[in-house]
């Protein structure tokens, strides 16, 4: 009885995992090959075909208030979305690794100062901090990526520091020191690979929140600027037509939700796979 339900549960998870992977793959392909796939340019306006319903002739997902093709905008919008997600998380991962390892290896003074700085950043509400930074650097895609990267750095730095500290006391690190291995080599060979699983999980979670932040900022008018396509922007524009054309809000909304869900789900499964105890 019990084993049966467990098997079923396992099967469901497998199914969702495959679905999530397929969806993200589709998204990546769409982003990379947007000009080839998209039926129209995302900014081309068909002023005679405004606010078309989905499944209209020539416009699979309908068109918006300026007659732009929703499908095309969705496809092009995934570019900024994935760029923001992957680049900002990479920046945060690199900076977090560097700071975290430094704080973990170094003594109390430097480590303490670094952690103080990091905790300072962490204590700000994320979106508020991003808005502050953008008000300094001005807006645009690059600035947004950079700010999200900075905001996420402390999250990684904290994990890396804690893991470094605990791994440094592990027997294999001590043995390696006794074998005369240089510190840098110990870090690259023993410390980083052993904390990688945790970092991967954290990265998928942050990737999802980066996407949400991108959408929210664009929605607030602080991110991607019109007429460039962005999911957040599409949501923002859809607000005025929510009753006439609800699909304008639904379609990017569902796409966004599905992306975040897929990322979180994959992160979950990867976490389980990488833990030898499960």
């Amino acid at each position: 009885m019990k084993t049966c339900s467990r098997k079923k549960h396992h099967k469901i998870r497998r199914f969702f995992f495959t679905l999530s992977c397929a969806y993200l793959l589709l998204l990546a392909v769409a982003a990379l090959a947007a000009p080839l796939i998209a039926p129209y340019s995302p900014t081309r306006q068909f002023l005679d075909k405004r606010l078309l319903e989905p499944c209209s002739e020539g416009h699979l997902l309908g068109s918006d208030e300026l007659g732009r093709d929703v499908l095309s905008r969705l496809i092009y919008g995934s570019r900024s979305l994935l760029a923001v997600g992957s680049i900002s998380v990479s920046i945060a991962l690199a900076a977090g690794l560097l700071l975290g390892i430094m704080a973990g290896l170094r003594g109390k003074l430097l480590g303490g100062c670094l952690m103080l700085l990091i905790d300072g950043i962490l204590s700000f509400p994320t979106v508020l901090l991003v808005i502050t930074v953008i008000s300094l650097f001005g807006y645009g895609l690059a600035q947004m990526i950079l700010t999200i990267g900075i905001v996420f750095t402390p999250v990684f730095a904290r994990i890396v520091r804690a893991e470094t500290k605990s791994l440094m006391t592990e027997g294999f690190v001590e043995s390696s020191r006794a074998l005369g291995t240089r510190r840098l080599k110990i870090v690259t060979r023993h410390i980083v690979p052993n904390m990688l699983p945790d970092l991967i999980i954290q990265a998928t979670i942050l990737f999802a929140s980066a996407i949400i932040i991108e959408a929210s900022l664009s929605f607030l008018g602080l991110g991607v600027q019109p007429p460039s396509p962005s999911w957040g922007l599409m949501l923002k524009d859809a607000r005025s037509y929510i009753f006439q054309a609800p699909h304008l809000a639904f379609i990017p909304g569902i796409a966004l939700a599905a992306t975040v869900f897929s990322l979180n789900f994959i992160g979950d499964v990867v976490a389980e796979k990488l833990n030898p105890k499960l």
Binding site: G171, S175, S176, R177, A178, L179, H190, P193
Partner: peptide, 20 residues
């Protein structure tokens, strides 16, 4: 570091002494 090679240590817990 050179001297290190001449003195070696074996720890109590063989499970943690090897990088998994």
């Amino acid at each position: 570091r050179e001297m290190r090679s001449r003195i070696q240590i074996i720890f109590q817990d063989p499970h943690s002494a090897l990088d998994p």
